[in-house]
Amino acid sequence: MNPRIVFSILLGSFGLILAFLPSPGTARLTENPKTLLYQSIEKSAYFSVDQVARFVVSEDSTVLLVDLRNPIDFKQVSIPGSINIPYNQLLNKETNLESYFADNKKRVIFYSNGDLYSGYALVLARGLGFANSYSMKGGLNEWFSTVMNSAFTGDRISARENALFETRTRAKKYFTEINSLPDSLKLQFAQKSSFDPKKLDGGCE
């Protein structure tokens, strides 16, 4: 057997098979559809705005808030400590979504103004195998109506309610402080709280 012919036949037929396959690198949801459905619509896939407020005031380092709105809105106002991935760039190669899930103890919470973008993003991220994805129920609209406009109306306050309102008040204060800063300082704050995804390097010869 002439080795040239052997290689030609082998490689030629493998090449033919490959020519019919989808390009590698295009993302594809890998979870089982039924499991993914159950996981993404159950309650544990959500965080309420009050839970997020608690994370914010305690500066919880096991949580990463991801703002899915466009950069202009993000610059104007955002929850302190969040980073910005515009929703339509979520699957871009440059976004490198995976790097935000590198630390498997960190919970990544998506939020937008409402429930649409965070819902889509949650399904995409969980479908791609990032089980640590969550969404903030109600989005920024809910954040404003619950946390920013919180006011206690009633006669007596229970200890539990007291704690809740204290968290809301502190989150509101923090939110107002950070978002009232001039743009340049806001940018500095955002950069400090974001991180550089580690890049694999290599080469040869």
Partner: peptide, 22 residues
């Protein structure tokens, strides 16, 4: 081109080149 099609083209080029080389 898709990666697979490019691979096939490269393989065909390589097979031709092995032949020329011999």
């Amino acid at each position: 081109l898709s990666t697979g099609v490019f691979t096939l083209i490269l393989i065909v080029v390589a097979i031709a080149m092995f032949w020329v080389a011999e």
